[in-house]
Simulated scan of single mutants.
Amino acid sequence: MIYPIIAYGDPVLKEPAQDIPKDFPDLKELVEDMFTTMYHAHGVGLAAPQINKSIRLFVIDSEPMMDDEEKGKGVKRAFINPEIIEEDGEDWGFEEGCLSIPGVREVVYRPERIVIRYFDEDWNEHEDTYDGMTARVIQHEYDHVEGILFTDHLSGLTKRLIKNRLNKISKGDVDADYRMKFPTVSKKR
């Protein structure tokens, strides 16, 4: 199943997600559907809030982000109830984008290395260290389950410069080659 991607402006993207219980129904199917949705939208990561599910789950496949020397070193994995327990190394900038914010790309600075504890879809616990591009993809998706968007990392000036584009996205005025769901705009007086 391919889910529509939730667009910028929907409250689900700004709420910290809930832990997933071990008896969560059809978890393996959901993980598979999330990979299918991510690939359909040409993404390298997808978090459950981006498909309107406020649970602590994201999937990544960092292989497309690897440069020529790193080919074959990408990571394809599901992260359930993740917790970043350490970040270190120098912060480095890279132009990030997001399936929920199509057409907007900005430089975000993140630590080069992380240690993360999580469960896979078989409920095996892992504690792994990642660096470089894979660490960045994980940090971006981890932010989603914390209710943080990459735009939250930008300077005040940059946020003001992209404000109109973000408002257009939230109203559905955007070109994306995948299905999206836009927040209902209601005016309170």
Rank of each mutant, 00 (worst) to 15 (best):
K188T: 09
V137T: 10
G45N: 04
H140I: 08
I148S: 01
E70Q: 12
F58V: 00
V44W: 00
E29L: 07
E29S: 08
I60T: 01
P183E: 01
A41I: 13
K53P: 02
G45Q: 03
D175R: 15
H140P: 08
E127R: 09
E95Y: 11
I80E: 11
K73C: 04
I148V: 14
G93Q: 15
N167H: 09
I85G: 00
D177R: 10
D122H: 13
V59I: 11
G147Y: 07
R165Y: 08
V115M: 13
G103K: 14
V12D: 11
F79R: 10
A78Q: 03
R77G: 01
K76Q: 10
H140G: 12
E86K: 15
P16C: 05
E112H: 12
G89F: 07
M38D: 08
Q139F: 04
D175N: 11
N81W: 05
I55E: 00
D26A: 11
H153I: 02
S155F: 08
Q18I: 12
E106S: 10
R179F: 12
P16W: 07
E32K: 09
D177I: 03
E15D: 09
V145F: 01
P21T: 13
E112K: 08
G97P: 02
Y8R: 00
I2Y: 03
K22G: 03
H40E: 15
D177F: 15
F79E: 10
I162S: 04
A41D: 09
G132F: 02
P102L: 08
G97E: 13
T184C: 04
E32L: 10
M38W: 12
F58H: 01
F182S: 05
S54G: 06
A47T: 00
I55T: 02
E15W: 06
L46D: 09
D152W: 00
V75Q: 02
I60P: 01
K188I: 13
Y8D: 09
E127V: 14
S155E: 06
I55G: 04
V108R: 05
R136H: 05
Q50S: 03
H40L: 05
E87I: 15
I114H: 12
V185Q: 09
R56K: 11
Y178A: 10
E29T: 14
R56Y: 02
E96P: 06
R117Y: 03
T36Y: 09
E70W: 07
V75C: 01
E141K: 10
E90G: 14
A7R: 01
S155N: 05
V115T: 12
R160I: 07
K14N: 02
V59S: 06
V44T: 12
V185L: 15
K181C: 02
L157S: 06
A7Y: 08
R56Q: 15
P25C: 11
V107I: 14
G156I: 05
S62A: 07
E121I: 06
D61P: 00
K73L: 04
F182G: 05
A135D: 04
M38E: 03
N164G: 11
H40F: 09
F58I: 00
D173S: 14
K171L: 09
T36N: 15
T37A: 08
R117N: 12
R113V: 08
F24P: 07
R165F: 06
V115N: 13
T134C: 02
M66N: 10
L154W: 04
G74D: 00
V107F: 07
P183I: 03
F182P: 10
